[in-house]
Simulated scan of single mutants.
Amino acid sequence: MGDFPLFGAFFAVLRRDLALALRAPGELANPVIFFLMIASLFPLGVSAAPETLRQIAPGVIWVAALLASLISMEQLFRGDFEDGTLEQFALAPQPLAWLVLAKLLAHWLVTGLPLVLVSPLLALFMNYPWTAVPQLMAGLALGTPVLGALGAVGLALTVGVRRGGLLLALLVLPLYIPVLIFGAGSADAAASGLPVIGQLELLGAMSVLALTLAPIAAAAGLRISLD
């Protein structure tokens, strides 16, 4: 019976964050627009040749997803910090890390999942092989939770700092590099017709590890910021 309040709190936080996100559709669309805008500018600055686009497509799509994920991180804790909700979470009987995990899930549903769903449009625009799009989407689905989890740790440490966006980027961008390497590598291998199961398994393992440890680290960072 003791598990029911725990799961009740988890789904209450999840529903709350989803409802708040749906009330601001403009902010909800910002990461997707940014994602599409970055990827669409590359052909203008590099080359519009189909073969060139196909070669750079995996890296461009993953860099665009990384940056779009980064700019959306401010929405995760900032509002709750400013209105005192985070203090209530810290005083709740449920572990703060558990509530952070609920917020991470809500954040991925409103930012990470849309990036996965619009990635076929970018693939088509970048002359990426259509037969490799499922592997591209699978890589993004496994990698974007890692980006969100790592970003949450950095944001937890900087949430009390005004205009901490630059500091957040300096903290988390080095941590994003392995995800970028394996994610773009899996997309490139899929485009070349090579097996991608190894890279996808690594991304899956990274996702499980990040979602297990990052909420604990983020909760500790939030307590430091709240003190």
Rank of each mutant, 00 (worst) to 15 (best):
G2P: 00
F4T: 00
G8P: 01
G8A: 15
A12S: 06
R15W: 05
D17E: 09
D17H: 14
L20H: 01
L22A: 14
L22C: 09
R23L: 11
P25C: 10
G26E: 01
L28W: 00
N30A: 15
F42H: 06
G45R: 10
S47R: 07
E51Q: 13
T52V: 13
L53A: 10
R54I: 10
Q55A: 13
A57Q: 02
I61W: 01
V63N: 03
A64M: 02
A64V: 01
L66P: 00
A68L: 07
I71Q: 11
S72A: 11
L76H: 12
F77P: 01
G79D: 09
E82L: 09
E82I: 02
G84M: 07
G84K: 07
L91W: 13
A92E: 06
Q94V: 14
L96Q: 03
L99K: 15
A102Y: 08
K103F: 08
L104T: 10
H107T: 06
H107A: 13
H107D: 02
W108I: 03
L109Q: 07
T111S: 15
L113A: 14
P114I: 12
V116L: 11
L117Q: 03
V118N: 09
P120Y: 11
L121A: 15
L122T: 00
M126V: 06
N127E: 08
P129H: 12
W130G: 13
W130V: 10
W130C: 08
V133R: 13
Q135K: 15
G139T: 00
G143R: 11
L147Y: 07
L147F: 09
G148P: 00
G148R: 11
A149H: 06
A149Y: 03
V153N: 08
L155F: 14
G160E: 02
G160V: 05
R162K: 01
R163F: 09
G164C: 05
L166K: 04
L166H: 02
L171I: 07
V172G: 02
V179Q: 07
I181F: 05
F182N: 04
G183E: 04
A184L: 04
G185A: 03
S186L: 15
D188T: 12
A191W: 02
A191V: 01
G193T: 08
G193K: 13
G193D: 03
P195L: 15
V196N: 10
G198M: 06
L202N: 13
M206K: 08
V208A: 05
L209E: 09
L209R: 10
L211Y: 14
T212Y: 02
L213T: 02
A214D: 00
A218N: 05
G221H: 12
L222C: 05
R223S: 09
R223N: 09
R223K: 15
S225L: 06
L226F: 04
D227E: 13
D227M: 15
